[in-house]
Simulated assay, not measured.
Amino acid sequence: MCSVPGPGAYGEVVSVGGDQAWWRRYPRVVDVAVVLVALFLTLGMMRFAGRPPTRRVLGPVDYGYAAAACAVLLVRRRWPVGVLVVTVLLAVAHGAMREHGPQFLPGQVALYTIAVARGGRAGLVAGAVLLAAAGTTQMVVAPEELSLGAVALVTSTGLAVAAGTGVRTQRAYVATLEERAVRAERARREEAARLVGEERVRIARELHDVVAHQLTLINAQAGVALYLHEGGQGEPAGLVETLSHVKDDSKQALAELRSIVGLLGTPDVPREPVPGLDRLDDLAASFARAGLTVEVRRRGEARAVPSAVDVSGYRIVQEALTNVSKHAATGTARVCLDYAHDTLKIVIADDGAGRGPGGGSGRGLIGMRERAAAVGGEVTAGHRPGGGFLVEAALPLGDQ
């Protein structure tokens, strides 16, 4: 008998990227750091720009441009295209007011942001606009530095677009992995819930079979004891024997209940073997003590059957005989096991005249059909033409 799968039976989802990196948790800190680094590099490049590189004295216009162009980078995540336009316009205006070529480093930071947010195609278009503006300004302001500045500008612009596109691709890949992990976790939880539901149905079916069978016997035996007592026919020995059967059957019912409940997670509860078709004679004897004579016959070569079929067959016979004892108003029943090549056929028949005093909800027949379907078989049940009731089950044996 299988137990209910625990929470860890299906594994745990491992986070794709672990804990979120600090630069993703604190984006404003990163933006401020980017502004400070860009400001430092922009001032340095303006101070040592030109060919040959010489140290230049920066004036208020230079510091003003660097501060304004870098400060606008604080909102680059929200408006990347607008920030690129502003930084390019500031660079062009600054280049027109000084004797050397403009610096487009803040614009390249904005270009990187566009590639991250909009993709490589948008980054290439924005990079072409930046290069066109930079080239035009350089030709007007400092044409003697055009060759060297053009190579550096094209290289740095290409790196900005490539870096932004790579970061975008990496983030999309991580997002895909995380989505797959979430879907896998959801699927595992749904599968665990489905298995738990099936196990609950199986345990409920086991409880129904055990309780219905044993209580039917106890009820019949208690009725016999009451009849002997009220009729005065009895000798104490007969009454004691009947009460002894009641005690034995109730003890067996409690033992089976403990075995089933033990599956719910109590490790110290003893678990008895699940009854199978080899215990049909004991089952017939228990019904005989309650006044129902059961004849068990076997056809074909009796052999070991799959455990699931063994348990299902036993429970089907048990439930069918319980229904006979409760509803058929007869004292005899017949059970026949027919071992074919790949199928075990089970027939339970009685000659009862109709429903006995016990009421029923039909749950027993439903349970028999569910047990047979669980192992790939089927159960049919109905009244016999000559009287009585007939239950037939066909259970597959597989390759023997």
Rank of each mutant, 00 (worst) to 15 (best):
R271A: 12
V174K: 05
H341F: 03
E235Q: 08
G291D: 06
L105N: 00
M46I: 11
M139W: 13
L283N: 03
A333N: 02
A21W: 04
E256M: 15
L397A: 04
S286C: 00
L58P: 03
Y26H: 14
R369V: 06
Y10V: 04
S244N: 11
V154S: 09
Y112P: 02
A308Y: 08
D248E: 05
G11T: 12
G231E: 12
L215I: 10
T42C: 07
A160D: 03
G119E: 11
M1I: 10
A68Q: 02
L36E: 04
G352Q: 02
D310P: 07
I316K: 06
A128R: 03
G50P: 07
A122D: 13
K251G: 15
H383L: 11
G388K: 06
G354D: 02
R56K: 10
H100L: 07
A172D: 15
E185Q: 14
V269Y: 14
A175Q: 04
P273F: 10
G238A: 10
P143E: 11
R303Y: 12
K247T: 14
V151I: 14
V347K: 11
R289L: 00
D282F: 10
A373V: 04
P267M: 11
P396A: 03
G123L: 08
V240H: 07
P143Y: 14
G367C: 09
D399G: 10
V240L: 13
L292E: 02
G123M: 08
G398P: 12
E241K: 03
D342Y: 06
V391F: 05
A21E: 05
G291I: 03
G358W: 06
R355G: 01
R77L: 04
V81W: 11
E199A: 15
V16Q: 08
V14L: 14
D268H: 12
A128V: 10
G101L: 09
G11D: 11
L124W: 13
A349R: 05
L131N: 00
C70S: 13
R334G: 11
M368N: 08
I366E: 14
S156N: 13
V261Y: 05
S361F: 00
S259L: 04
G354S: 02
S361P: 00
T293R: 06
T330R: 03
N219S: 14
D62F: 01
K345Q: 08
D310H: 10
Y339H: 06
G377Q: 05
V296M: 00
H229F: 12
